[in-house]
Design a protein around this nucleic acid. Structure first.
Length: 412
DNA sequence: TCTGGGGTCCTAGGACCC
DNA sequence: TCTGGGGTCCTAGGACCC
């Protein structure tokens, strides 16, 4: 079914040229790499015996049943001798960057999925770099040697199969699904392996006696659509019949940038929440400007004391990455939602997201300007407009503090 | 006994335009 | 005064993923 041998049979139509590379227990592995005393021990990142949630568990902890995102109490019940460390997100970002450099050095066709996961298409590299299994093997060696982290790679003809293969191959493995053994590999899998099948859909399907991918494949398409909806029904039907034509796409940009903050049980008044909101808006708009992105749609996310959730959103006429207009919209949304917040017994989480992210097409003019230099900015904007035609040129002026407007913006 | 922070995609109803 | 279809955009919610 899947092999680890160089002389594996390669029969069937199409070739297994898509790699899914997935770092193992990423955060926990970085911690074990950086602190030898943690190696070989059950480790939870982010949780303590008294609370918090497990952001990542080492394989020693996973062996005891610890999972993400289990809460600390439950986790330590399962694994009393587990060690706890605080997350160090900068270290993870840096490790991720180093690993993606190796991905990019392997093939130009890399599609990042998350901080620790990517698809690579190595189809055009046979002459240059050898067969996919060799490329995958070297990739694993390099990540291990150069970055010091274990990584599992699945190799298959489609994205979905490559992804499933890496999941089955974990930890620290390499699995190839040969094109002539795909259905044999796919059909016995539990439905939860299908993309899009989470707790709700899984329950729905299992209640109808549908437990494996083969069960899904045997279902009439219309019945499936009736059961789980149009888009999901079609997707599940396709995947279960081993149809997955998605390419590995480069240059995918995300559609939204957001930040949220858990608030605990203590009730916050409107003023305290405004401070939280300001921090969130500042953090997000800063990230937007660093990424040279602008957006139009502001969404506030609420979680209430009773664990209920709600969102409120509003769109601006055009995209911006400036703090002030986005903060204004966010405040208006919070004002409008305030009666609901009071009614539901206060907030336990507040989130701020900017969506409808457009490529601004703007060169960010890093002009250190003061209020008196605003006219200078206008001149610069006019110059850019003259040069590039600038039909959709946006002037995002208020990046720094604006004490006169009474808006306590954080320094940029 | 209640949990984090970052995202994506789909659905459905209403407003609005032609 | 009543009635149609098609399309887009917006908002809110839900499911899902890592």
């Amino acid at each position: 079914m899947f092999v680890d041998e160089r002389d594996a049979p390669r029969v069937g139509k199409g070739l297994a040229t898509i790699l899914h590379a997935d770092l193992d227990s990423f955060y926990a592995s970085v911690e074990q790499r950086d602190d030898p005393s943690l190696r070989g021990r059950p480790l939870a990142v982010g949780a303590r015996p008294t609370g918090g949630v497990v952001l990542a568990a080492s394989y020693e902890a996973k062996a005891m049943g610890v999972r993400t995102p289990m809460n600390g109490r439950d986790a330590w019940k399962l694994c009393p001798h587990m060690v706890s460390v605080r997350p160090r997100f900068e270290a993870y970002t840096e490790a991720s960057r180093a690993v993606f450099e190796i991905f990019d050095d392997t093939t130009p066709i890399v599609e990042g999925i998350s901080i620790d996961e990517a698809f690579l298409d190595v189809g055009g590299l046979r002459r240059l770099s050898g067969p996919p299994i060799d490329i995958a093997s070297r990739l694993r060696d390099r990540v291990r040697t150069d970055v010091g982290l274990p990584i599992t790679v699945g190799v298959a003809r489609t994205k979905f199969l490559a992804k499933v293969a890496s999941g089955v191959g974990k930890p620290d493995g390499l699995l190839v699904v040969e094109p002539d053994r795909e259905l044999e590999f796919l059909h016995p899998l539990p439905i939860e392996k299908l993309w899009g099948v989470g707790a709700v859909t899984s329950e729905k399907l299992r209640a109808r006696g549908i437990h494996t991918v083969a069960d899904v494949a045997s279902l009439d398409g219309e019945v499936l659509v009736g059961l789980v909806g149009r888009a999901m029904g079609r997707q599940l039907a396709a995947l279960s019949h081993n149809v997955d034509a998605r390419r590995v796409r480069t240059g995918v940009r995300r559609g939204s940038i957001g930040s949220q903050q858990a608030l605990g049980r203590a009730r916050r008044d409107r003023r305290e929440l405004d401070e939280v909101l300001l921090r969130l808006v500042d953090r997000v708009t800063r990230r937007m400007r660093n990424a040279d992105r602008a957006g139009r749609t502001v969404t506030l996310r609420f979680r209430f004391d009773d664990f209920g959730r709600a969102t409120r959103s509003s769109s601006l006429p055009g995209p911006t990455a400036a703090t002030t207009p986005l903060l204004e919209v966010a405040r208006a949304l919070l004002d409008a939602a305030w009666p609901l917040v009071e009614e539901r017994g206060g907030l336990t989480l507040l989130g701020f997201t900017v969506g409808n992210l457009d490529d601004t097409g703007t060169v960010q003019l890093a002009l250190p300007f003061t209020r008196s230099a605003e006219t200078g900015l206008d001149t610069a904007v006019d110059a850019v407009r003259d040069k590039f035609g600038g039909a959709s040129l946006t002037r995002a002026s208020t990046l720094g503090s604006d004490p006169e407007a009474g808006v306590p913006l954080l320094p940029d």
